[in-house]
Design a protein around this nucleic acid. Sequence first.
DNA 1: CCGGTATCAACAATGATTGTTGAAAAACAA
DNA 2: TTGTTTTTCAACAATCATTGTTGATACCGG
Lengths: 152, 152
Amino acid sequence: MRTPEELTELFRSSGRKITAQRQCIFRVLQGNETHPSAETVHAMVSVEMETISLKTVYQTLHDLAELGEIISLDVGTGMTRFDPNTGDPHHHLVCRKCRSVRDLVAGFPDLQIPEGADLGFEVGSAEIVFRGLCPDCQLSAQGQGADIPVRA
Amino acid sequence: MRTPEELTELFRSSGRKITAQRQCIFRVLQGNETHPSAETVHAMVSVEMETISLKTVYQTLHDLAELGEIISLDVGTGMTRFDPNTGDPHHHLVCRKCRSVRDLVAGFPDLQIPEGADLGFEVGSAEIVFRGLCPDCQLSAQGQGADIPVRA
DNA sequence: CCGGTATCAACAATGATTGTTGAAAAACAA
DNA sequence: TTGTTTTTCAACAATCATTGTTGATACCGG
Ligand SMILES: [Mn+2]
Ligand SMILES: [Mn+2]
Ligand SMILES: [Zn+2]
Ligand SMILES: [Zn+2]
């Protein structure tokens, strides 16, 4: 994702108008590595703008995704997560307990599908989701503690 | 997943009763490689039993998942898919257009996370989702044709 | 300044899934 | 066979993330 300033320019040049809400969302997303959901973005933005609506957040996130400035992620946590890190291709670590999502910056160049194993699919991309326990949840996982079920 | 006969025994020995509905679901799942959703299982079972309720299908699928006989999959198609192939670990090919899901039986033993890249996560499993176009959709993809958006 | 967006609140709707109820049917142990 | 327990069913309502709607107000930008 580009800087809020560049996004401002991009929005304008793509026929969109610049509002305080949108710029606030730009700022919140900038450098954010937590892969927030729309709700989470809304909560963060609400600190600065108490009256911003969740609807507006969804709209702006969709605009950003449409422009390729953020990526919509579905890692099975029940809510779409948004990722401003569009620069380097990467994979994700997902905590089974608290559902936090972190980047895993590693190549894995060996995702070549063996001859004939692709069943005729024309494969365009591959995503790896590593599931486990984040550092925080390892501490609080003394003995018991059920995982949060993955979506429904 | 075991055979319908073995599942019948397993259900009984786990305190569950055997019904015509459940056995019908066992049969439909047996050897099914399409990763059906609950709705799809319901549709298939309905051919034999017109009055079976979707609720019953959900219940039985959950029982089977609880017993480890099938796996619940979330590959971003909006509906949970069920996989009776619990024998060999494998990954999945997902069609961007029709959302069909097929097995990709390949090792990928090189999913070792580089030192320090795991951010302290205690990683238990890794799933790879390959996205692309299935053979059928390659044919009907002459020129245009929008992808079905991934969940929401 | 003016026209077109954007935002807001408030609300309804979606779609997959789960919960509830009460009645009827079936399973199965004795 | 009988009696207890489970399961199923229909018909609903509820959930949760997300999208749509409306009408009024605000404000961006040429
Ligand atoms: Mn990421
Ligand atoms: Mn599979
Ligand atoms: Zn955690
Ligand atoms: Zn397809």
